[in-house]
Every structure is written in C-alpha cells, then in structure tokens.
C-alpha cells in the first residue's frame, strides 16, 4: 500500500489530478478522525478535513518525499485544527457546551451505537481537558502509532518538549478521569430515568 501511496504522490506532483483523488480516497478516514478528535464536531471536522486536502494539494510540490506522506498530511491537519481551536477560543463558545454530535458512520444496532457514543463521549471529555497541541500529540500517538520523532516533526516540537507534553497530557487525563469518578451524576441525566430510582 505504501508503494501505491508513493506512486500516487509522484503522479500527483507531476500534475495528475486523479492520482490526488486516490490519495483523498485513501486518507479520508485518518484525516477526518484527527480533525474530529481535535474539534469535537462533525461539521467542523468535515470542513477541516476538506481544507487539509486542499492545502496538501496546493503545497504538494513542497512535500519532502523522503518523509512519509501520512505524517505530512496529518501534520497539516493538526496545525489547521490547532489554529481553528485558537480562533474558536476568541469566539465565546465553549467546547463543553457543544452537544455530542450524531456520528457520521452507520452503526449496526441501537445498543452498539449507544455504547460507542458513550465511549466516544468519554474520550471526548478526556481530550477536552488537554491543551490543543497536547491533544494533537495524544491523538497522533494513540490513534496513528506515530513515533516520538514523527510527532515532534509533525508538530514542530523538540523531542524533549514532546516528551514532557505527553507526560503532562497523560497526567491531566488521569486526573480528569478521577475527577469524573468523584462527581455526582448530573441532574440533566436524571430526568430520563425512572422517578422511583
């Protein structure tokens, strides 16, 4: 598959638009997943993923072919999402206030869908507790199995900075989980439950 990717990249660099379409088809899920985990919103994630591919298309000639294409592409996505989060911070909308969006892909059954939604909500709240760059580093590490070297290149960090960021992120997430465990069930949830309980 890596050979195919290299071939598509080379063809796209030589001006073959269909080869780039193949790259979009191949990398749509990883790019979208990163954007979704970063931005927590299906619409924003779609927009960010589309923008990522456009930026990659425009800057394809600057891509260093000695590096993996996936790392370069996800680096564009991560930087774009970090910028979006920083812009979003200026507008007074808290991520915490946003509802958990309906998931874009089809789930087999209602129970499985609910379970998946709960799991995604749990992960979302953990990732929400992190700083934007830390969040990107965690996503790249746990979802894409990137090495420290790849993440530090993608996020323009030194390896020691990345190491300390990941340490801090892990600690923050563990602390967040502990805080969630010690919190009482919110009143909003109670209204859907039986009054006898």
């Amino acid at each position: 598959m890596q050979d195919d990717v290299n071939r598509w990249v080379e063809l796209a660099r030589n001006g073959d638009p269909q080869a780039f379409t193949q790259l979009v088809e191949h990398f749509q899920n990883p790019v979208y997943n990163l954007c979704y985990r970063m931005l927590n919103n299906a619409e924003d994630a779609e927009d960010a993923a589309q923008e990522t591919f456009l930026r990659a298309y425009r800057n394809l000639r600057r891509f260093d072919s000695s590096r993996p294409f996936a790392t370069w592409l996800l680096s564009i996505a991560a930087h774009y999402c970090i910028d979006q989060i920083r812009k979003r911070r200026m507008v007074v909308v808290s991520i915490q206030d946003l509802p958990v969006p309906d998931l874009p892909d089809n789930e087999p059954g209602l129970e499985a869908k609910l379970g998946l939604k709960q799991e995604r909500e749990r992960i979302r709240s953990l990732l929400d507790s992190l700083d934007d760059v830390d969040r990107a580093a965690v996503i790249m590490y746990y979802w894409y199995d990137f090495s420290y070297e790849e993440i530090s290149t993608a996020l323009s960090l030194t390896q020691s900075a990345l190491k300390s960021r990941l340490h801090r992120a892990r600690r923050t997430m563990a602390q967040q989980w502990l805080n969630q465990q010690s919190q009482p069930v919110p009143a909003e949830r109670m209204k859907y439950e039986s009054p006898t309980i």
């Binding site: 979009v24 088809e25 749509q28 979208y32 299906a42 589309q50 874009p104 799991e119």
Partner: peptide
C-alpha cells in the same frame, strides 16, 4: 480507552465533495 478508541470516518461521498 485511548488504545481501543475507534477511527471515525466522514459521511459517504467525501471525495466527491472535495472535488
């Protein structure tokens, strides 16, 4: 939780929308 977190994909027709 992080290690078992699934990969979320976009709605169908992403490539066509990109084009």
């Amino acid at each position: 939780d992080l290690r078992t977190g699934d990969m979320i994909g976009p709605r169908a027709g992403f490539t066509a929308r990109w084009e």
